[in-house]
Amino acid sequence: MKRYDKLIFVSNSDTCRGPMAEAVLKKKFLLDELVIESKGLVVLFPEPVNQKAEAVLAAKGINVKGHMSGQLEQGDFGERILVLVMEESEKIKIYEEYDRAVNVYLLTEYIKERGDIPNPLGKGLADYGECYELLDDLITKLVVVLNEEELLC
């Protein structure tokens, strides 16, 4: 029996790091089917992926056209849902503001590493590229952890 049915990447606005992480993980090989989404903590209205993030992903052959930001909601939590955030402050905010919050981890924490994933918002294209490379590396390690968990369940 698999541990999680759904994984949600959470970032501040769901227009950069979250959608990038979602898109990267969807390109990786998982042993079992997993619904993969991204959501934001502050989404006033649906927005597309940041243009620089989209350009970096497109250069890697990943299409995120059609993704619109979505607000994290109380219903996004459950025993079979894994929520991975980009920054420690986001994890704290979730536990403060969402009564049903469970299984919320910093992405790096979940793979037994440390540190926040820097937000490239407002910076140059090279910074978005660095964010992609970091996410790709971390998500490759995440795939190993998730696949090992599936084998142990």
Rank of each mutant, 00 (worst) to 15 (best):
V49F: 06
G66L: 13
Q74I: 09
L134I: 05
Y95H: 15
K65I: 06
I8S: 00
L41A: 04
E73F: 10
Q71F: 10
N63D: 15
L31K: 15
D137I: 03
Q74W: 10
V24R: 01
M1V: 11
N12L: 13
K65A: 11
M1C: 11
T108I: 02
L135C: 04
E148P: 00
L31R: 13
K141T: 06
F29L: 13
R80P: 00
F45C: 05
L44R: 12
E54N: 11
P120W: 05
S89K: 14
V145R: 13
L152M: 13
A53N: 03
E90Q: 15
Y110F: 15
P118Q: 08
F77A: 12
D127C: 10
L84R: 02
V10Y: 01
L135K: 02
E133L: 08
P48D: 05
E47Q: 09
K26Y: 03
K28V: 06
K2H: 08
F29E: 15
A21T: 07
L31T: 13
S11R: 05
D136L: 03
Y110C: 00
V145H: 07
K112F: 13
L7G: 00
Y105G: 01
M1W: 07
L30Y: 10
A126C: 10
A126W: 12
V56R: 02
K141A: 10
E109N: 10
K112V: 07
Y98S: 01
P48R: 05
D137P: 01
V42K: 06
L152G: 02
E149Y: 04
V145Y: 08
Y110E: 02
T108G: 06
Y98R: 03
L134F: 01
E133P: 00
D127W: 10
P46M: 03
T140G: 14
P19R: 04
D116R: 08
Q71V: 09
H67E: 06
V56W: 01
E133S: 07
P19V: 06
F45Q: 11
F29N: 14
E54S: 15
L125D: 06
E54I: 02
A126Q: 15
L146T: 00
S89I: 12
E113N: 08
